Amino acid sequence: MNSDTVCAIRRSLLFSAVPAGDAAVLLDGHGTLTLNDGDVVFAEGAPADFLFLVLSGDVLIDASPASPQLRLSAGDTAGEEAVLTGAPHAATARAAGPVTLLSMPAGTLMGYLESHFDVAIAMISAMAGNLREQVREITELKMQSTAERLASYLLALAGDATGKAVVRLPYEKRHLADHLGMDPATLSRAFAKLRDKGVVASRTDKVEIADVATLRTYGDCAAFTA
């Protein structure tokens, strides 16, 4: 058993209540998948035969064509709500760039949970908390204009920086557009609208912010709409 795989399970919030000695039980029959950009992890309406743990890279969840997408990264799980309820997948998941996933058979997980009620309750609680956070994020994004969404995202990347800051986008702009619920052309227009707020995007992944406080004021006050 690969010790790195066991450690990945232990670091996952969903599996935080699983005793250390039981990780190997959950990994019985598991597999490791390496996917390329755009490859489907699971499709909407498909049976939930596996739960997926992101080991590296990012996965996008398409809740609906009109909504911002959810982005999962290393340590996040995908498909757990379908596996734990026995329902088909409610959305499609795709690789956003190269991604490596651990696939856990649904039958293995459910068999374990049947005899570990306390762990099952802890998993449901963790899943509910994660769902609340995802709903909050999507709700906030949908209430903002496209430029406001972009400003909020850039401010999150800037963190506690003050004054002038340079941030780097963690993935391609087309994937950023997907995450923010817009198409690439709309993202370009949003960047253009932020120029008078001191935001300059390069052709690569670098974005310069002339003054973080000015951008933050814009985001708080919603100075204009898209």
Rank of each mutant, 00 (worst) to 15 (best):
H116K: 12
A122R: 09
D28N: 08
P19I: 00
A161T: 13
D37E: 10
P65G: 02
S115T: 08
G129A: 14
L150G: 02
T34R: 10
A128D: 08
H116V: 04
T225Y: 14
H116M: 07
D76L: 09
A192K: 13
V40K: 05
V25P: 02
A190I: 01
R10Q: 11
K206P: 00
A91Y: 06
G38E: 10
F52H: 11
E81V: 06
G29L: 01
Y112P: 00
I209L: 15
R11D: 01
V40N: 05
R216P: 09
S188M: 05
L131T: 14
T217P: 00
P98Q: 12
L180Y: 13
T204V: 07
L215E: 04
A122F: 01
A17D: 00
P98E: 12
A120V: 02
P88H: 11
T139S: 15
L33R: 08
S125R: 13
V119F: 05
E80M: 00
A95F: 09
R203V: 09
G129C: 15
L35H: 08
A185Y: 07
V135Y: 14
E172C: 06
A151C: 10
E148T: 10
L131W: 07
I124G: 03
V167N: 02
A226C: 11
A165Q: 13
K142N: 11
Q134A: 15
G181D: 06
L101G: 04
S16P: 06
D183V: 08
P98T: 12
D220S: 14
G163C: 04
S56T: 01
V135K: 14
V199I: 02
S152D: 15
S188A: 12
K193G: 13
T32I: 10
G111I: 04
S56Q: 11
V167L: 11
T139R: 13
D178P: 03
L180F: 12
R10G: 03
E208Q: 12
A156T: 13
G198R: 10
V207P: 06
A93P: 04
A201H: 05
A95I: 10
L155W: 14
S12Q: 02
S67C: 15
G45C: 08
A161S: 15
S64Q: 09
A87D: 12
V167I: 13
A23L: 02
A192S: 09
P68A: 14
K164L: 06
A126L: 04
A8D: 01
T108K: 05
S67F: 15
N130S: 14
L169A: 04
C7E: 11
A66S: 15
A78M: 06
L113I: 05
M182A: 09
T108S: 02
